[in-house]
């Protein structure tokens, strides 16, 4: 079971983020939840690419030995930058929504139930 600890961390991160997205009404908290899901996905990609007792795939002053997989690391690198860009765009939209509706409650914004 100890081998599955990183996967459990991934599932915990994604479920915490999903909880915030599904049950919270504050838009800022929903944005935080989306960021949590993104962190979970990045951790999942990195976890899949790790081989036991492997070193980083860089040859400069490398101690030798087997190397971990480079492609998931490259995809995670791309994913992190896209995450920052999307986070900035989401927060700007939240600021715009707050100035227009004077509230951050998602259900009041879409005109749903008020109880």
């Amino acid at each position: 079971m100890a081998f599955y600890v990183p996967y459990i961390a991934v599932v915990a991160l994604i479920l915490i983020g999903l909880y915030a997205v599904v049950f919270k009404r504050n838009l800022i908290k929903i944005v935080i939840g989306i960021t949590f899901i993104e962190c979970g996905v990045n951790l999942f990609l990195i976890t899949l690419g790790y081989r036991e007792k492997s070193i980083a795939p860089i040859y400069t002053s490398s101690p030798g030995g087997i190397m971990s997989l480079p492609v998931p690391q490259a995809l995670t690198l791309t994913s992190i930058v896209i995450g920052v860009a999307v986070l900035a765009l989401m927060l700007s939209l939240v600021v715009h929504i707050y100035r227009h509706y004077k509230t951050l409650d998602a259900r009041k914004i879409i005109g749903g139930d008020e109880e």
Partner: peptide, 29 residues
Amino acid sequence: NNAVTSVVFDYRGFDTLGEATVLFTAVAG
């Protein structure tokens, strides 16, 4: 010497091109 950089910019350059487009679009937005 860095295999990750060679993946990012050479073997999978199209990914980086799309990522650059996303960053540009986000900044424009």
